[in-house]
Amino acid sequence: MKGNEEPVRGRLLAEATRLFADRGFEGTSVQEIVTAAGVTKGAMYHYFDSKDDLLHEIYARVLRMQMSRLTQIADADAPVAERLHRAAADVVETTTANLDDSKIFFRSMHLLAPETRKTVRAERRRYHERFRDLVTEGQRAGVFRSDVQAEIVVDFFFGSVHHLGTWFHVDGSLSGGEVGEQFADLLLASLR
């Protein structure tokens, strides 16, 4: 990719994120996005197949970053309880740091084309499975209680994470990192 092309793609994503957050996915036209980004529709379609594709990428870039971080944490040479705590705190902190992206996505996911929605669910499932593997590892090692299925632990935890967009505020009394630490503490306490 040429050096001058990446800023165009970034502007399109930034403006789409801003507009989707302000007006909603359905209430934002491709024309409004390209006008705000200062590019032509042709330039947009060079990078994205559709408005749907833009929505997918808004969430996918956050998920790729989170997956990379989770892999690094999960593969670290540390006790499983420490790795799970770090992973839980990290997903909360990175979600709150990218709150508009997450809110837009969860509010609009049902509007994606069926094939795109299927792809996104598979990407999220891979993340949740990697997280679940840490729970399972701790259960097998006798570090975590084993009377609760790891899948339920993950569903319960991520239900709370996905709900952050409804109440967390950047200017609130707790930072994303502080909320992440408290979520992680609660998760680990529930597994003892």
Rank of each mutant, 00 (worst) to 15 (best):
E123C: 11
T40K: 03
D155S: 14
R11Q: 10
R125P: 04
G27E: 01
H162C: 14
A37R: 02
L112Q: 10
Y47L: 00
R107S: 15
A36H: 03
H110S: 15
Y127W: 14
V135T: 10
G27R: 01
Q66D: 11
K41P: 08
R11P: 00
V92S: 05
S50E: 09
A113M: 10
V39Q: 00
H56G: 13
V143W: 03
S173M: 03
F20M: 02
R126S: 15
A89P: 12
A150M: 11
A36D: 03
D49C: 04
L70G: 07
R125Y: 13
E137P: 10
L111M: 09
T35N: 06
L63C: 05
D147C: 08
V92R: 01
A89N: 09
D185F: 11
I152L: 14
Y59V: 01
I33N: 06
F168Y: 14
T136V: 14
F106I: 09
L99A: 01
L112R: 09
E15L: 00
E6A: 05
K2W: 01
A37V: 02
M44Y: 01
V8S: 05
V92T: 06
L134V: 05
A78S: 14
Y127A: 08
D100W: 08
E178Y: 02
L164V: 08
V34K: 02
D155Y: 12
R69D: 09
L54E: 01
G142C: 04
G180I: 07
I104E: 01
V30M: 08
L99N: 00
D90K: 08
D77N: 15
M65S: 08
R121M: 15
V135I: 15
H85V: 11
Q66A: 12
A76N: 10
E82G: 15
L191P: 06
A21F: 09
S173Q: 03
G3C: 00
D133S: 15
L63V: 12
L174M: 07
L134R: 03
Q31M: 06
P7C: 02
T136R: 14
Y45S: 04
S29H: 00
E115I: 12
I152S: 14
S102R: 12
R140I: 06
R69W: 00
L55W: 05
G42T: 10
R130Y: 05
S146F: 05
Y47C: 02
V179A: 05
S29N: 01
Y45I: 07
L84G: 07
Y59P: 01
G42D: 03
E115V: 13
L55T: 07
V135E: 09
A36S: 10
